[in-house]
Design a protein around this nucleic acid. Structure first.
Length: 614
DNA sequence: ATAGGGTTAG
């Protein structure tokens, strides 16, 4: 066979392809003598077939090339054509399954041909996104065995995927394999690891990786220069665990490392100081930012505004927003949600509604979260009709309620004794395909048991556990225990409490459960029983709180059991459990009446000491 | 890499 024959075949196929005559091209290809179908010719026809979506035909041609004894073996160009085209095909038709692509990688590998880095990275990312990290792992593992992997990028893609799939052990294993195969990690590789550690609040581990990466410690040789994103990640990680001072120091290091802080750097720090309530510091950072000519953006605005609102400075926040608006920085959905939520929390529903109006006038389309915020706020403020009308608005805007919203609505309608309407929300929820969860059931169980309809409460409990396969939670038991107590049926309440203590239930009682029972027993003057439950708490490591002590103090006062009260006062101080005005009222009245002012004073001082120690 | 809502017991 002459080279020119092959060359002219390539030209012919290309020309036919260009004018869309795929069938003719395929026919021309099949008339060729098998010796004439060399690698170049085959590459040409495969490319043409794949580009026009004829995957099966292309695979037929390819399969012959991939046979172990094939006369015309695939080359790098073949791999490029095959993988790049297959990755582009997205429609359902002609789509090659991911495991088939993986199989091709392995078959090419037997000919010592490997996909190029970009195609391989895309393939790995795609597999990881569709939840197929195992396949991605096998591909890279196989390539490493064939010595066909040199670059870190595909490994980085897999590391990201493994992180999202929470396969931590495999992340470590991959890092080790990279090291064994001498694949040099890049700043991206370390960035993924550091980001991952920060997300799981393992900030000290992240800092250790960071130091190792910089290679400043003698024993390690790795040297990779950190970049801005990596510094920002660490600064954010430190801020998220309340270590904003260290984060601020790190910004200093960043500067001396020739990484200029960006808007995001400041946003992270401002967020950190806002979370710790140091709004002034946050504001100072904002000013510093303007001085350094680092432009604040809408995230800066939202972070500060949210911080101010969450620390009871709503009017300062509004003023700040107005100033920023005048400077030309527009708010967005998040800004308005922050304000709507803030006004809901202080029960200023009219202002909350005003902000919904304003946001539309400002050209922001309210999204689902904005509506959820307002609906829940209104419902919780007891304005059920207003909440319902905002639900209509939400639906007109094309959004749906989510599970939490339904739960809030059901709960609030139950609280107002509007069972019919609550039932309607429940029906709508199920029709909309939003599955009720244990919160939904607990709400219903709580409502029915509180109105004394234990039969229905237990029916819902049965539905929840047997039909929905949901496990009862501490709230489920709490609702029943509380209701039985209210119904003066302590025996039944205790029975349920004991049920919780069964090994099988796996729901250990918490402080609230004990408090319900202790309060109830105290009110029934079964003080000794209540005290035995207090011992039980100690035994099981459940911390009593102010409510627990208040219930017991009241009962002890009625019995005038002074010694017992003194012991418990000491215990409160010991465990730094702060008395509230109820505690003080009971004790002041009682102890002064019996002339034990000294004990009272000692208690108050003890509390102050333990308070400042905390 | 950075910003928003969040339900069920005392």
């Amino acid at each position: 066979m002459s080279l020119s024959t092959a060359q002219s075949s390539v030209h012919l196929l290309r020309r036919l392809g260009r004018i869309g005559m795929v069938d003719e091209a395929l026919a021309a290809f099949s008339t060729l003598d098998s010796h004439a179908k060399n690698t170049n010719v085959r590459n040409e026809i495969i490319n043409l077939l794949l580009k026009s979506g004829r995957v099966d035909n292309a695979m037929n041609v390819l399969d012959e090339m991939l046979l172990p004894e094939s006369e015309f073996r695939p080359n790098d160009k073949t791999a490029g054509i095959v993988f790049n085209n297959l990755l582009k095909i997205d429609g359902l038709e002609g789509r090659v399954k991911e495991d088939e692509i993986a199989g091709l990688v392995s078959k090419f590998g037997k000919h010592n041909i490997f996909p190029d880095t970009i195609a391989l990275t895309q393939l790995i990312s795609k597999l990881c996104r569709s939840g197929n990290t195992n396949l991605a792992w096998n591909i890279l593992d196989n390539l490493m065995m064939l010595n066909g992997l040199k670059d870190a990028a595909p490994c980085n893609a897999l590391l990201t995927g493994l992180g999202k799939a929470r396969e931590f052990g495999k992340m470590n294993l991959l890092m080790r394999k990279m090291k064994d195969m001498n694949i040099q990690p890049t700043v991206i590789t370390f960035g993924i690891l550091i980001n991952h550690l920060c997300k799981f609040r393992r900030i000290d581990d992240a800092l250790e990786v960071f130091e190792k990466m910089k290679g400043e410690k003698e024993e390690t040789k790795v040297f990779v220069a950190p970049d801005t994103i990596m510094y920002n990640t660490l600064i954010d990680g430190l801020c998220k665990v309340g270590r904003q001072e260290e984060a601020l120091c790190l910004m200093g290091k960043m500067r001396s490392d020739q990484c200029a802080p960006t808007t995001a750097t400041f946003n992270c720090l401002i967020n950190g100081y806002c979370r710790s309530g140091e709004i002034e510091v946050a504001h100072k950072l904002f000013n510093e930012m303007e001085n350094a000519q680092i432009e604040p953006n809408v995230i800066t605005l939202n972070t500060l505004v949210d911080g101010m609102c969450k620390h009871n400075r709503i009017s300062t926040a509004v003023e700040f927003f107005r100033v920023m608006q005048q400077k030309g920085l527009k708010g967005n959905n998040v800004t308005y949600t922050v304000f709507i939520n803030a006004f809901c929390n202080v029960n200023n529903m009219n202002k909350a509604m005003e902000f919904l109006d304003e946001m539309s006038k400002d050209g922001c389309f309210p999204d689902a979260v904005v509506y959820y915020t307002l609906i829940c706020g209104l419902a919780q403020a007891g304005r059920l009709d207003d909440a319902s009308s905002v639900v209509s608005k939400l639906k007109e805007a094309g959004f749906c309620l989510d599970r939490v919203c339904y739960n809030v609505l059901i709960s609030e309608f139950c609280k107002k004794n509007k069972l019919d309407r609550a039932q309607e929300w429940l029906n709508e929820m199920e029709l909309a395909g939003v599955k009720p969860d244990s919160v939904t059931y607990n709400t219903l169980i709580s409502y029915f048991s509180k109105i004394g309809n234990f039969k229905l409460a237990h029916k819902f409990m049965k539905k929840m556990t047997e039909e929905e396969g949901l496990s009862p939670t501490v709230f489920t038991y709490g609702a029943l225990i509380h209701a039985y107590c209210l119904n003066n049926n302590i025996d039944e309440a205790i029975k349920i409490f004991k049920e919780m203590n069964n090994v099988a239930s796996k729901v250990p009682p918490n402080t609230v459960i004990y408090n319900i029972l202790i309060d109830s027993l105290c009110k029934q003057t079964q003080v000794n029983f209540a005290l035995s439950l207090l011992d039980d708490m100690k035994f099981r490591g459940v911390m009593p709180n102010t409510t627990t002590y208040n219930s017991i103090f009241k009962a002890l006062r009625d019995k005038n059991w002074l010694d017992k009260a003194f012991k418990l006062m000491d215990r409160m101080v010991e465990q730094a459990c702060n008395p509230d005005y109820i505690t003080m009222e009971i004790l002041t009245e009682w102890l002064s009446a019996v002339g034990e002012i000294t004990k009272l004073k000692k208690f108050t001082q003890g509390c102050m000491v333990s308070d400042s120690a905390v």
